[in-house]
Design a protein around this nucleic acid. Structure first.
Lengths: 206, 206
DNA sequence: CACCTTAATGACTCAATGGTCAGTAAAGTG
DNA sequence: CACTTTACTGACCATTGAGTCATTAAGGTG
């Protein structure tokens, strides 16, 4: 009655733990929102004690911020790079990579971040700042540059869209929200976004 | 040392109390969201004890639902009536009353309801149902009818917008959200909505 | 003005939850 | 294998906040 090699009660995995906890936290925040999310549940999903969560993240709020920032929208970066190096005509770029990008947003993690920011943003102004600086602002600036270039090459004419590139992405926003809110009322968001792009192009082409 | 007529500690106002409490609740929910809102604070703002709140509303959740439903969007009704009785050409109607309506949404109470529904909707499916049935669904149906009529009179041609009238209101949604989220980053939402309507019309006119 | 109904209060309960920390044991290290 | 370090646990605490209810008194009624 001895030497039964009891398996260890836990493993020490300093490296991976923060990621795992953040991942679990993302899920819980996504489902419940910030206020209704329970740190205990985050820990449970990460397969970890609540105490450990507090070893890696000082407070619930810090965990939240880390999680939101963690969805580091590299996608925007790659799109921006693509814009600046593409060989396509402006129109082809909009119809191709740009539309594809916009179609990917609804249903993605970014939508969820979006929802969280809409819901709780004003209580975390630094998060909003971060998100505007790194995503929204840069995205819009990129669109403006792109349109400007289109005008220089004679493809586009100058319209109100130049000042308000939000006009280009509005249906993407609507699609993202629609899919999250009216889950059951289906909406062909791909088609919506494409149709809108047709309209935009018709409007801005020289 | 007597007969000092002590003023009553409270007044009984059975009629008005529910409204006042609901009004206060709307404020608090608007600021904090559902989960972070405190019934105590609602009572305080309504100038009432917490107990009274529970006399008129069984639970916090019921209070929430009552409040959301309370923003009974009669505005949509009056717009629908207007659509059906207007003497204007379809184009004039879109440029006039329709744009005016859309411009009023950002900054209005409806935006706030919208935010609350985006944030907490999936945990109150009956609320979503209600809101879709009474606002979103009816609004979209109205737009579809309107466009159809425009086609019949020869003003409009048939386009993707007929199937997806969401295309018409997307910038309104963006505007509403932008104003709530990026309070400091100003955006001329009136102009945005108008410019978008120009584009729509250019696209759908026969 | 005595009496009654009930609107309104506010002190209370109890479960839940963010956060702490003393202790445990996993994985080195020499 | 003894010794050390520290990742990790889990029991614990203090607080908060939804919901209750015995009590009070406003205001009507006869």
């Amino acid at each position: 009655m001895s030497a039964v090699p009891t398996e260890p009660r836990y493993q020490r995995r300093k490296e991976d733990r923060p990621k795992e906890i953040a991942e679990a936290a993302f899920e819980v925040f996504a489902e419940k929102g910030y206020a209704a999310a329970r740190v205990d549940e985050v820990a449970k999903r990460a397969g970890v004690s609540k105490g450990l969560t507090y070893l890696y993240f000082k407070t619930k709020e810090e965990l939240f911020k880390a999680v939101i920032r963690g969805v580091v929208v590299r996608r925007i970066d790659s799109l921006i790079d693509e814009v600046d190096s593409t060989e396509l005509t402006a129109e082809a770029f909009l119809r191709g990579p740009m539309v594809a990008f916009m179609q990917r947003i609804p249903g993605s993690r970014i939508s969820i971040v979006l929802r969280l920011l809409i819901a709780e943003g004003h209580r975390h102004p630094d998060l909003l700042e971060y998100y505007y600086e790194n995503v929204v602002g840069r995205g819009l600036a990129m669109l403006r540059r792109f349109l400007e270039r289109g005008i220089e090459t004679g493809e586009f004419r100058r319209t109100a869209v130049n000042d308000m590139p939000q006009l280009i992405v509005a249906p993407m926003l609507l699609s993202a929200i629609w899919k999250m809110v009216f889950v059951k009322r289906s909406l062909d968001t791909d088609r919506l976004i494409e149709a809108h792009m047709d309209m935009i192009l018709e409007h801005i082409k020289a």
